[in-house]
Design a protein around this nucleic acid. Structure first.
Lengths: 343, 343
DNA sequence: CTGAAAGCGCTTACAG
DNA sequence: CTGAAAGCGCTTACAG
């Protein structure tokens, strides 16, 4: 091969531990110790090794390290989407906590699809992660096998499974939707509709719908045809309800949305159509993202413990990996009803 | 150790390739081939191997694979934050494209801090990633060394560096801010202020500010004291400008925000204070996130090519890794001025 | 406090 | 189409 870029220095190979060892006049074992248990290495030796590391720019090869030590600092985390302040709040918290302790987050996006989750799992498992964090408790058969065989700590997020796979951190989506429906009733609303994501195998959607239905039944309020509105994820979906209200096919005085994204979309769509909120239509969201308190009228919503879930998950996972987790397998981070202006 | 969970089957070790080989009556070499170049293995043998893989739940150990093959499918990507529709749009596109081709995204969050970036790089580089994607062109000295030594394809995102490290994909932040300032002038505004993130070492902030200043100078408009407002990231920061307008310390007719997050925060704060937008104050954003077209009045903003950047980056990176990228080192994805209702 | 030996689980580079 | 040998770059488990 000929030199095509004379301005570049000769491309040196990535330094290995043996290069550092040779430069420092020791064996790789001593370099390895200087890196992992420096207190056990003499100061003089350590100094020489540090210098050799500086000169070579050595960074240990994690593949080799994990292969022989049979452990990795890789933690796999799978979320439906990152385009959502609710999940990204949890992701940010997780990533911050894990980064601080030297763990590496391998993030995957399932797009609300448990088949995609399976495909990601089957590949990520090859890294022999120390822990695997998944959203929800609904998984394919093969996903369950992969989790089972992986020897990793498994954490299921965002709800409270009756039979957790291993560990779980979340809150009761069913109760939260139930309480918000009941609150809307307390505030005087009677014709309460429910807008939900159309993901039939998403346990969060299913639970929230159940909460809405149970509350309506307990309150003696009928769920009339059209009062359950299934839409795809996105702010644009919010306009669906407003269109139906305007053309007279939907007669309601309140709308509970299964996410703030939908609620804000609906709210803006209502204002644009000249409807007054909550006068003509009360709107409640689910999530309490930053935007919820910023919009005008400010959004009444369910505060979801997104940061707490991230925090608890990171803590629980790291404790478990250190062999000192002694809490319950399922941690409930709670939720709360936040009444603002929109309902 | 005693059996504490009699209901669980005996914990089997994670299957290795040799387990599969033994079950199928071949050597590991043949299993390896069946996995990587199945067309070269006889149908009968392949069938036996597939069955053994099923039975054992075997997933190849990537650490071993990458150690010996001296290549990985790991791609490191570092972003300032994920709590931002602009970056998460790029991240989602990247992650989707890479996932589809079997690459694994190791994501890191720098929190707009190049020291954090350095710390992440120094650790992630241990995975010997095939490519490293970073946001911006401002890096610490040690970060540059790490990138230099890594042998990875490097892609810098979100601007157009004069001297790219290797490859770059972005647009001109300076020109975009310049054009928006000029547009505001064309639309009749004269006292134009600029709200920016207070990250002095963030080249995107610096470039956008330069664009604003250059345009004001070219237009012969003075930048009076207080017309450049530096704030931390977040919607809440939007209210700063409104407070100053209300208490009379800031006299302006238009505000250009360096992100839609700030612009929406300002817009909502203005509406809440009873100001009319754009009558009392015109507001322009930067980003064109989904929310920008949803809020009322809809936000005038700079459309930033977040999806295009993700798409081009993924394509360029994978082409380069396949040894067939022959495009320019710096790809300009452009931007456009979107006039809506707020200015 | 330091080192020699062995091996983690794969793939490369042969050979047949 | 399949296999025997060697080795990737580290750490474990000794020994001294």
């Amino acid at each position: 091969m000929t030199e095509t870029k004379p301005s570049q220095p000769p491309k040196r190979r990535i330094a290995r531990m043996s290069d550092v060892a040779r430069l420092a006049g020791v064996t790789t074992m001593t370099v390895s110790r200087a890196l992992r248990t420096p207190e056990v290495v003499s100061e003089e030796t350590r100094r020489k090794i540090d210098e050799a590391i500086q000169r070579t720019g050595f960074v240990p090869n994690y593949a080799a390290r994990s292969l022989v030590s049979k452990r990795t600092d890789v933690i796999v985390a799978l979320f439906p989407t990152m385009m959502n302040s609710v999940f990204s709040g949890t992701i940010e918290e997780l990533s911050r906590r894990f980064q601080a302790k030297g763990y590496h987050l391998l993030l995957g996006e399932t797009r609300f699809d448990i088949e995609v989750e399976e495909s990601l799992l089957s590949s990520f498992v090859g890294w022999r992660p120390a822990a695997i964090i998944v959203t929800g408790s609904e998984h394919t058969v093969r996903s369950r096998q992969l989790l089972e065989n992986s020897e990793a700590t498994i954490v299921e997020l965002w709800n409270l499974p009756k039979k957790p796979f291993d560990l779980a951190v979340g809150f009761s989506n069913r109760d939260a939707a139930y309480d918000m429906t009941k609150s809307l009733h307390d505030w005087g609303y009677r014709r309460i509709a429910f807008m939900n994501l159309h993901y039939p195998r998403n346990d969060r959607s299913v639970d929230r719908r159940a909460g809405y239905r149970d509350a309506m039944a307990d309150l003696g309020l009928p769920i009339e045809p059209g009062m359950e509105i299934d839409v795809p994820f996105g702010m644009k979906s919010g306009q669906v309800a407003i269109e139906r209200i305007l053309d007279g096919t939907l007669k309601i005085d309140a709308l509970l949305c299964s996410s703030d994204t939908l609620a804000v979309g609906t709210l803006m769509s209502a204002l644009r159509a000249g409807l007054s909120v909550p006068g003509d239509l009360a709107i409640a969201g689910f999530g309490d993202v930053e935007l919820a308190s910023i919009v005008s009228p400010a959004l009444t919503t369910v505060r979801v413990p997104r940061t707490e879930i991230g925090f608890e998950t990171a803590k629980m996972t790291m404790d478990r990996l250190d062999g000192r987790y002694d809490g319950p397998p399922v941690v409930d981070c709670g939720y709360s009803i936040i009444r603002r202006e929109s309902a």
